[in-house]
Amino acid sequence: MSFDLSLIVETVPKMLAGVGLTFQLLGLSAFLGLILAIVLLLMRISGKWYLDWPAQLYIYVFRGTPILVQIFIIYYGFPQLEFIRESVLWPIFRDPFGCAVVALSLNTGAYVSEILRGGVLGVDRGVLEAGEALGLSTTQRFIYLTTPIATRLALPAYGNDIISLLKSTALASTITLMDMTGIARTIVAQTYAPYEIFISLAIIYMILTFFLQKFISLIEAYLGRYTKRES
């Protein structure tokens, strides 16, 4: 058994060619997932059962099933349904990239909405009462008081979810997409050198995770700049 360093030098640039696709998947699904999460959150805190229940069911289903199964249902399963093949959305579902983005967004949206809800529930009631006493309407209280405080509270957990999302993008390689993992699996199938290639890829992912974490803690520090106590 040998550890072929020259193979690493040769293959790392090839795998890095897929980093763009990884970032596209991450960025698009994080953005769409966040929008979905906000909609679900508003449905859950609306206080109306006909909005709350569907949102709860959605979250229950998407958090209770593996993301890989969700990806397979959308990519392999949807073409079975005629009304999807005839709908305007068919170009999205025909394309593995579209399917991956849809699946990742739907999945992360369910998780993020619960994270946001945790933030909203964590807002101190005294602040809201003060807002009410100052004559702010419910909507104003939500926008000017709840949103900034809840964002700050939810950010650390949200950061962890973004990192989970980065790791989930690797599953796009199971539906023929050539992201970093997809490229690595092709190279391993050709060279049969799993250690060299998968370990270098793992290190690339760890570096990305590290920078994402740094980036999120920068935002955390920025949002928390008023909450720091002067010593």
Binding site: L166, A170, T181, F198, F210
Partner: peptide, 10 residues
């Protein structure tokens, strides 16, 4: 920090 699928394959 590593995707699950990568750990399994490795």
């Amino acid at each position: 920090g590593t995707p699950e699928i990568l750990v399994i394959l490795l």
